[in-house]
Design a protein around this nucleic acid. Structure first.
Lengths: 345, 345
DNA sequence: CTGAAAGCGCTTACAG
DNA sequence: CTGAAAGCGCTTACAG
């Protein structure tokens, strides 16, 4: 790269002059159009390089009416599940020469509104959104009206058919619950009930239905309402352990809750997998390094992120295709906190 | 918002016509210029709203030569330290009405080069960068040549005076090591040596110097080289425990390593804080929920992220100010893995 | 305080 | 395969 010229801004007009072709041809070359003779293209590219040319995306965006940025709206980056999802999605986008405009809403509706508006102003080509708590279904209407393609991740909008990537929460939690039952547990609690949050209710229902299917009457005292966080998990376990009649097993809403619960167990000198069986959900990278290693459900967040990107890319190519859905079927990862390995000895 | 009109794209020209002023005035109003009479501004704003106007940033960027996006280049999102840093930085930027273009390099030089080039094309107003492993100092030259303001986070460039936000690694690790020595340990190992990585060498030096200052001869067999990851920590601890002469305390490069080490300890039926004293570094949110809770160094990643944003914002306001530095002094957080609480009983 | 005019750097039909 | 021309929607001096 020639350092001197790169200081002054060089445009396609300069390249055109220097290489003896028209602006149009330069533009075509820059966009890898097959219309240009290879020899010409090569010459143009060499000139661009030599002049220290930098493509100006703002100009292209203005002209074309869209940009090559993809908005990524994430509700909770303090949960590694969403971080891993973000990593997968971002990597895939980069491979397709898009770049990610990130916004962390921290479950705040106002922030979500603000960033979405900003992404619209930036002429984002599309949006991947993990909606924050209690996002009204009208958001879907707005996004459509704006002509902004989007795929929804993990949290579906009630009554709306949108492109969606998620996991089968109901089936997953049933597998987790059944696993505990198969190990001989009858007194099983659930930590992470959150009535304002559809996914929580879905998982709770999976837990509850599974108990009933096995002839066990669900105990509402054991459906612990907490914040979805490490602190919430710890607090939830604490409240559970303070009850006079303790359960022997616990299904946790997710790995964050499970990790917090494990921590409280340790504080009380109790051992997961021996004194109490614990199962999480999500299969976050850290779950394998809990002490003891956490039995959980693999939801493959990074994979889900990649799928979300691919789906959005497909949507951009084909705006009128029918709504797409990807529902991952969780797999049980048996590690130590459920006690299965001990039981097998 | 009027739904019908928002479908066709309305521009400032439309607003100008509809409200009986010139384009210039509309532009001034949109940018909150004090030059416009309040009554006029109000009228213009109402018209804009009514027509369903959407500001077109691409046009503004083209005209102004810069955008309102800030590039955030992060080396390792699988380390919560950087995630928390990102959260802090992003929130601060949003408050200042910037929006974050995120790139995760996953310690890959090629990806880093690619995303930086892309951010340049997008006319990013500035960059916050946590450089990936072995980033050559020439990157600084490029960035300067490009006229792209940036602040470097955590990893400084050797021989380059750049705006920098980081922590005093040397002093921090000495505090951690001294804490173990004060608890009576003499045989202290270090997990997370990585000779290609300056921060690791800095922390290793803090550990080593602290031992010597206390009349203890450092044992190179106990300076465990590993990947900086959960797996690396687990593996490092495993190799340490396989040695015939085991240490009684371990200083870990960071919380990721410490968490992995804790996990291996648990697998072997050993208890941190009793059979082996462990200290981490970084003070990631999850460190409080390890089992047992991790004694570590508070580096306040979220705060560092905020500081990085503020520093970049200051730099944008004042391009010619001398280089700025922020070096956080770590604080020791005593929890359970060091055994101090037991010792005090 | 407000308006008329120029121009930022691209892309895209349209000719040839 | 290549060129001339128009225009995307803003902002910014410059007048008044």
């Amino acid at each position: 790269m020639n350092t001197r010229q790169s200081e002054e801004k060089v445009t396609i007009t300069d390249i055109a002059k220097a290489s003896g072709v028209s602006k149009s041809t330069v533009s075509l070359v820059l966009n890898n159009s097959p219309l240009v003779r290879p020899a010409t293209a090569e010459k143009v590219r060499a000139t661009a390089e030599q002049l220290g040319y930098v493509y100006n995306r703002s100009a292209a965006n203005l002209r074309q009416g869209v940009s090559n940025v993809i908005g990524m709206v994430v509700n909770d980056l303090s949960n590694s599940f969403f971080v891993e999802l973000l990593i997968g999605a971002e990597r895939k986008m980069l491979e397709s020469s898009y770049i990610t405009l990130l916004a962390h809403t921290a479950e705040d509706q106002n922030v979500q509104r603000q960033v979405l508006a900003s992404m619209r102003e930036h002429k984002a080509a599309g949006i991947i959104i993990c909606p924050s708590f209690e996002t009204p279904a009208e958001l879907v209407t707005s996004l459509r009206q704006w002509g902004l393609p989007f795929v929804t991740v993990m949290r579906a909008f009630e009554g709306e058919e949108t492109d969606f990537v998620g996991a089968d929460n109901y089936v997953g939690i049933q597998m987790a619950t059944q696993h505990l039952i198969d190990l001989g547990h009858k007194d099983i609690a659930f930590i992470g009930r959150n009535s304002t949050y559809a996914v929580s209710m879905e998982r709770l229902r999976g837990y509850s239905d599974c108990l009933e299917k096995n002839g066990i009457t669900p105990n509402t005292d054991w459906m612990i309402e907490t914040a979805i966080s490490l602190a919430g998990g710890k607090d939830g376990m604490s409240r559970l352990l303070d009850q006079t009649h303790r359960p022997t097993g616990v299904v946790c809403y997710n790995d964050l809750i499970a990790t917090g619960a494990l921590s409280e167990l340790g504080n009380r000198g109790l051992k997961a997998g021996e004194d109490m069986a614990i199962v999480g959900s999500d299969g976050v990278a850290g779950s394998a390094y809990c002490s003891p290693p956490l039995t959980t459900l693999a939801l493959e967040p990074e994979h889900l992120g990649e799928v979300a990107s691919e789906m959005l890319l497909a949507r951009l190519k084909n705006p009128d295709a029918p709504p797409m859905k990807y529902l991952l079927k969780p797999k049980l990862i048996v590690r130590d906190t459920c006690g299965a390995k001990r039981a097998n000895r």
